[in-house]
Lab assay of single mutants.
Amino acid sequence: VHTTPGLPSGWEERKDAKGRTYYVNHNNRTTTWTRPIMQLAEDG
């Protein structure tokens, strides 16, 4: 699994054909234009 540093585990930053940045979530095979926020791990 490709992961971009600074993004949550399983996420990758890519660019489309027009050079726009988007983000790929390999965990559930989705994409988004919005940069994901790293969540702190919570117990329980």
Rank of each mutant, 00 (worst) to 15 (best):
21 T>L: 07
13 E>L: 05
31 T>Q: 07
27 N>R: 10
12 E>A: 06
8 P>K: 08
2 H>Q: 09
9 S>W: 12
5 P>S: 15
19 G>K: 03
2 H>Y: 15
16 D>V: 00
20 R>W: 07
5 P>T: 15
41 A>P: 14
8 P>W: 04
42 E>W: 07
4 T>A: 05
5 P>M: 15
4 T>N: 08
19 G>L: 02
14 R>H: 08
11 W>I: 03
13 E>F: 10
18 K>A: 13
23 Y>G: 02
22 Y>A: 02
15 K>W: 09
17 A>R: 01
32 T>V: 01
5 P>C: 15
37 I>N: 14
8 P>N: 12
3 T>E: 13
39 Q>N: 12
43 D>N: 14
20 R>T: 10
42 E>D: 12
11 W>T: 02
1 V>G: 02
7 L>Q: 07
7 L>F: 06
2 H>L: 06
7 L>W: 04
3 T>C: 10
29 R>P: 01
35 R>G: 04
29 R>F: 06
33 W>G: 04
22 Y>C: 09
32 T>A: 04
20 R>D: 07
37 I>T: 13
22 Y>R: 02
1 V>D: 13
39 Q>R: 11
28 N>W: 10
34 T>S: 10
30 T>V: 15
31 T>V: 07
41 A>N: 11
33 W>S: 06
39 Q>K: 10
13 E>Q: 11
43 D>T: 13
30 T>F: 05
27 N>W: 06
24 V>R: 05
18 K>R: 09
41 A>R: 11
27 N>Q: 10
23 Y>C: 00
33 W>L: 05
6 G>N: 14
24 V>Q: 04
38 M>W: 07
42 E>Q: 13
10 G>E: 03
3 T>D: 12
22 Y>L: 04
12 E>I: 04
40 L>I: 12
19 G>C: 03
6 G>Q: 13
38 M>I: 13
44 G>A: 12
2 H>E: 11
10 G>T: 01
16 D>A: 01
10 G>M: 03
39 Q>D: 13
38 M>Y: 11
16 D>S: 07
6 G>E: 15
37 I>F: 12
41 A>F: 11
39 Q>S: 12
2 H>C: 12
26 H>W: 10
23 Y>P: 02
30 T>H: 05
16 D>G: 01
4 T>C: 09
32 T>W: 01
40 L>G: 14
22 Y>K: 02
33 W>K: 15
4 T>W: 03
32 T>Q: 11
30 T>W: 15
40 L>H: 13
28 N>A: 08
42 E>I: 01
35 R>L: 04
1 V>F: 08
16 D>K: 00
31 T>W: 05
23 Y>M: 00
27 N>M: 09
28 N>H: 04
33 W>R: 08
30 T>Q: 04
35 R>E: 03
6 G>R: 13
40 L>V: 14
10 G>F: 06
13 E>M: 06
10 G>R: 04
28 N>R: 06
6 G>T: 14
4 T>Y: 09
36 P>Q: 02
14 R>C: 08
14 R>S: 09
5 P>W: 13
9 S>T: 11
43 D>S: 13
14 R>K: 14
31 T>C: 08
25 N>S: 03
44 G>V: 15
4 T>V: 07
13 E>W: 01
37 I>R: 11
22 Y>Q: 07
39 Q>T: 08
18 K>G: 10
36 P>E: 05
6 G>F: 01
10 G>Q: 02
40 L>Q: 15
1 V>A: 05
43 D>R: 10
7 L>I: 08
9 S>L: 12
2 H>W: 03
28 N>P: 02
25 N>D: 10
24 V>E: 05
8 P>M: 09
34 T>G: 05
9 S>H: 10
34 T>V: 14
41 A>W: 07
39 Q>L: 08
44 G>T: 14
1 V>L: 06
38 M>S: 09
35 R>S: 07
34 T>R: 10
29 R>E: 07
37 I>M: 11
30 T>G: 02
37 I>A: 14
27 N>T: 05
9 S>G: 12
6 G>L: 10
7 L>H: 05
30 T>K: 05
18 K>V: 06
31 T>M: 04
7 L>E: 06
41 A>G: 11
25 N>T: 03
2 H>D: 13
43 D>H: 09
13 E>D: 01
42 E>G: 14
42 E>C: 11
10 G>P: 05
14 R>G: 03
32 T>G: 01
14 R>A: 09
39 Q>P: 13
19 G>M: 07
5 P>I: 13
36 P>M: 00
40 L>R: 14
29 R>T: 10
29 R>C: 08
37 I>P: 14
30 T>D: 08
35 R>Q: 07
34 T>P: 01
10 G>I: 00
30 T>R: 04
25 N>G: 03
42 E>Y: 09
18 K>D: 15
35 R>M: 03
26 H>E: 13
3 T>G: 11
29 R>S: 11
16 D>E: 01
15 K>A: 06
3 T>R: 06
12 E>R: 04
23 Y>R: 02
16 D>C: 02
32 T>C: 06
41 A>T: 15
2 H>G: 08
7 L>R: 02
34 T>L: 11
4 T>G: 04
21 T>I: 12
22 Y>P: 04
31 T>S: 12
6 G>M: 13
35 R>W: 01
18 K>W: 01
8 P>E: 10
23 Y>D: 03
27 N>D: 06
1 V>Y: 05
38 M>F: 11
39 Q>M: 10
4 T>P: 01
9 S>Q: 15
33 W>E: 06
37 I>L: 13
8 P>V: 08
38 M>E: 12
42 E>T: 09
14 R>W: 04
14 R>L: 05
41 A>V: 09
25 N>C: 03
32 T>K: 02
40 L>W: 09
38 M>D: 08
43 D>W: 05
4 T>F: 08
13 E>R: 05
27 N>V: 06
39 Q>F: 12
1 V>R: 02
22 Y>N: 01
43 D>I: 05
37 I>W: 06
23 Y>Q: 04
31 T>K: 05
3 T>W: 07
7 L>P: 02
25 N>M: 00
17 A>K: 14
21 T>K: 12
22 Y>V: 04
23 Y>T: 03
36 P>V: 00
35 R>C: 08
6 G>D: 14
29 R>A: 10
40 L>E: 13
43 D>P: 08
11 W>K: 06
5 P>A: 14
19 G>D: 09
2 H>S: 13
7 L>G: 05
10 G>W: 02
42 E>A: 11
4 T>R: 02
36 P>K: 00
10 G>V: 01
8 P>I: 05
43 D>Y: 08
25 N>K: 01
29 R>L: 08
41 A>S: 11
40 L>T: 12
2 H>R: 09
16 D>Q: 00
44 G>K: 11
43 D>F: 05
24 V>W: 04
44 G>W: 11
3 T>M: 12
40 L>C: 12
31 T>R: 05
44 G>C: 12
28 N>M: 11
14 R>V: 10
42 E>M: 07
13 E>Y: 02
27 N>A: 10
12 E>S: 04
21 T>G: 01
34 T>I: 15
41 A>K: 11
37 I>K: 14
22 Y>T: 01
24 V>A: 06
28 N>D: 10
31 T>I: 08
9 S>D: 15
32 T>S: 09
5 P>E: 15
8 P>Q: 05
26 H>G: 05
6 G>H: 08
12 E>K: 01
38 M>G: 11
39 Q>Y: 09
10 G>S: 02
16 D>F: 00
2 H>V: 11
42 E>P: 09
7 L>M: 09
6 G>A: 11
2 H>F: 02
34 T>D: 10
41 A>Y: 04
16 D>R: 00
10 G>H: 03
14 R>E: 04
34 T>E: 14
9 S>M: 14
3 T>F: 10
39 Q>E: 13
22 Y>G: 01
38 M>C: 12
39 Q>I: 07
33 W>C: 02
29 R>M: 15
7 L>K: 04
36 P>W: 00
12 E>N: 08
